[in-house]
Write a protein that binds this DNA or RNA. Structure first.
Length: 116
RNA sequence: AGAGUCGUCUGGGUCAUCGCGUUAUCCCUAUUAAUAGGAAUACCGAGGAAAGUCCGGACUCCGCAGAGCAAAGUGAUGGCUAACAGCCACCCGGGGCGACCCGCGGGAAAGUGCCACAGAAAAUGACCGCCUCGGCUUGCCGAGGUAAGGGUGAAACGGCGGUGUAAGAGACCACCGCGCCGGUGGUGACAUCGGCGGCAAGGCAAACCCCACUUGGAGCAAGACCAAAAAGAUGGCGCUUGAGAGCUGCUCGCUCGAGUCAUCAGGUAGGUUGCUUGAUCGCGCGAGUAAUUGCGCGACUAGAUGGAUGAUGACCCAUUCGCGCAAGCGAUGGACAGGAUCCGGCUUAUAGGGCGACUCUUCUU
């Protein structure tokens, strides 16, 4: 699981990341990520799970699994980064999808950072 | 043994590793000196419905001289409770051989309204039929009587039997039903017995309405405290005689330069609090048919806030499937469902399992 400092907390963080950030998507997930020097040093991650996924039990269980997977990869993100994961469809396992998307996002972030 | 009725409990278990949240202890760092951040260790960490948010309260704020209207809700009787639309007991009506179950149970002789389709008529009614009278073309027409019969309908103007009649009819009579009066039993709803009365009384009140009783409003996003920024008020200093800022350990010096500093009230963003020990639960004894309650002893560890429970492994138990005569082996791996101020209820969802009480039938002794 992710510790509290690695989680997005406010509504404005979510809207800024989803509206102005970059995107990477798969069949089941969409990953938004934003890198800016004004953001906190620790990488932060937030989840968006709609009611179409299932009832409250299902949504919480999906969120816990995603946080568990994301914990192993959050340290690979560069500092000053915020990430939002949106869940589109219900699935048995999100491990491969999330791992692939996060690797892609990290690759693009480090490339743009190199260009600077 | 079989068939049933009712109540109640449980809601996979044990262990290990990593991770997350609250609290406590200790250590480190920072300063505003009692807070913040970080690290370690320990303890604890979703439910019987946490759900729906349908009732009732606690708690908080606002309002409030008193009375009435409106609106909403409740509706047999007695009790329990903080309170209730809840619960218990009992009454009444209905169902079952029975254990037991079902019923939003005041008023339809205060008034208004509605009663689909069918049917003559849904409440000032005559379609068929029956009877009487009149007419003639002798089996039809007209006038009238009749709610016993037919047919329609969820429901047809008290039921049934007799007297009676042209035919009929509470027109009259007995029993039942209904209403009133009285006796007895019961706290009471009511039951039962006796007498009298006339047949006046179709259903719907979850149609309006009438009667009785209850209710001030909003809700933890309540409320309380702290309090950025921007704007405001007051005061100090200053506008080339330089306030203040940057460079610096300090002074000098250099550069920028027209506003700047302090206080105040308000209370936005944000934060803290409210926040979990309570009409609490378990056991024993006592009161009560029971709901419930008195006393004594013991127990109590979720408090998150984009919202903490996840991942992996081992064993056991349960389910299902396959192999097998069986023992067993292999695979599968759990119903409904996730706290958000807290309690009492109701309703709805729920795989499987355990326990208790009782009824009926059959057999044996």
């Amino acid at each position: 699981m992710l510790s509290a400092k690695n989680r997005l907390r406010t509504s404005s963080d979510f809207s800024r990341t989803t509206k102005t950030g970059h995107r990477a998507s798969s069949q089941q997930l969409v990953l938004y990520f934003l890198h800016h020097a004004d953001l906190p040093v620790e990488p932060q991650l937030g989840l968006i799970i709609s009611k179409s996924i299932g009832n409250s039990v299902t949504r919480h269980s999906v969120a816990r699994q995603l946080r568990h997977i994301a914990r192993q990869h959050i340290s690979t993100f560069p500092p000053h980064t915020q990430v939002v994961v949106r869940v589109l469809k219900k699935s048995e396992s999100y491990t491969e999808d999330l791992t692939g998307l996060m690797a892609k996002a990290v690759k693009r972030l480090t490339e743009t950072g190199a260009n600077k």
